[in-house]
């Protein structure tokens, strides 16, 4: 280096050249990646613990530590959680709650998306006097704590003869999903080029014609986003399930809580964790399968109208 120094000004090719060397193990990289690693460990750990615990037998759990992988893998806890776990005196397992949740989920998701998309479409393309006012009320409604509204809804459902029945809960999900979904659809339809809508009107298409033949086919991605949002939201609901249904109709989350937190009998942690996993699997599958769309769905909740 020293004997080169004289030449630096004279010759062109001297001193640093090409890309600045960035060692893979620079202090900065080490810090960033080790932090990220620890963070990921922290977030992944509970899922790991859940799975590991659910695959162990009770004797192994009593002896070992919760982070240790199972010595002897057994699927018995899963079978038991699904088919035999007890809530109170009823020992038919979590499967009942699973099917209840499915029965609640399908009509709730379909109906709420249908209604909210039509609402959003009317708000975006067929504004009428007062439509924005109702929409604003709806959006602010999303911030009203549920606790303020739950009891009057009990009365309304009772009057309609739906209290304690699945259709009643479906109605509740449709109502509470409406603000966010309407916002989602309204914003999306507003972003579509208006020429499309105008051209269709010139061609004589009416309100429903444009909706079904132009808007819906053009908006499949946003329908998927809405579906993801609703499926996870409804599946994970606990409060409405516990209030508006009777024990034989309890959704999975409610049944799960009753199984795990029941005070009777010996605690079977492996069965509990298997039951917890079973309940978590549906949203997890949706989450891992949908990737970016899930992020888009929850981010849609964050954007303001």
């Amino acid at each position: 280096m020293a004997n080169n120094s004289i030449n630096i000004a004279a010759t062109a090719v001297s001193g640093p050249s090409g890309p600045k060397p960035r060692p893979l193990l620079s202090p900065r990289n080490i810090m960033i990646y080790s932090t990220l690693f620890i963070v990921c460990m922290y977030y992944a750990l509970p899922l790991y613990v859940m799975i590991v615990t659910s695959l162990k037998g009770m004797p192994e759990i009593r002896l070992g530590n919760i982070f240790a992988p199972p010595v002897e893998i057994t699927f018995q806890p899963w079978v038991k959680a699904w088919a035999e776990a007890c809530t109170g005196l009823d020992c038919s397992g979590l499967s009942k709650g699973f099917w209840n949740s499915v029965k609640i989920l399908i009509p709730s998701a379909a109906l709420s998306i249908l209604i909210a998309s039509i609402n959003g479409y009317a708000l975006a393309n067929w504004k009428f006097k007062g439509s924005e006012v109702f929409f604003t009320i709806l959006i602010f409604g999303a911030f009203v704590p549920y606790q303020v509204i739950i009891y009057p809804i009990v009365i309304i459902l009772r009057e309609l003869g739906l209290f304690g029945k699945l259709p009643g809960l479906v109605l509740v999900h449709v109502i509470f999903g409406m603000p966010i979904l309407t916002l989602l659809f309204r914003n999306y339809f507003t972003s579509l080029p208006e020429e499309l809508f105008k051209a269709a009107r010139v061609d004589g298409a009416g309100f429903w014609g444009i909706y079904f033949r132009i808007m819906v086919p053009m908006s499949l991605p946003i329908f998927v986003v809405a579906l993801i949002l609703q499926v996870t939201g409804i599946w994970n609901d606990f409060l409405f399930g516990v209030i508006y249904t009777k024990p034989e109709n309890y959704p999975m989350t409610v049944q799960l809580n009753n199984i795990v937190n029941s005070v009777q009998g010996v605690k079977e942690y492996n069965v509990n964790m298997a039951a917890t996993m079973l309940t978590g699997i549906v949203p997890l599958i949706i989450y891992f399968a949908s990737g970016k769309l899930f992020v888009r769905g929850i981010a849609a909740g964050a954007v303001k109208g």
């Binding site: 613990v49 919760i66 606990f238 309940t279 899930f294």
Partner: peptide
């Protein structure tokens, strides 16, 4: 990394609560 950090958000509070009940269990956790 984002996928790992965000997945808990997809879970029900019931699931979250039960897992942490287990992890924070003084006898085993």
């Amino acid at each position: 990394v984002r996928t790992i950090i965000l997945y808990p958000f997809a879970l029900s509070f019931i699931v979250t609560g039960l897992v942490w009940q287990w992890i924070l269990n003084p006898e085993f956790g």
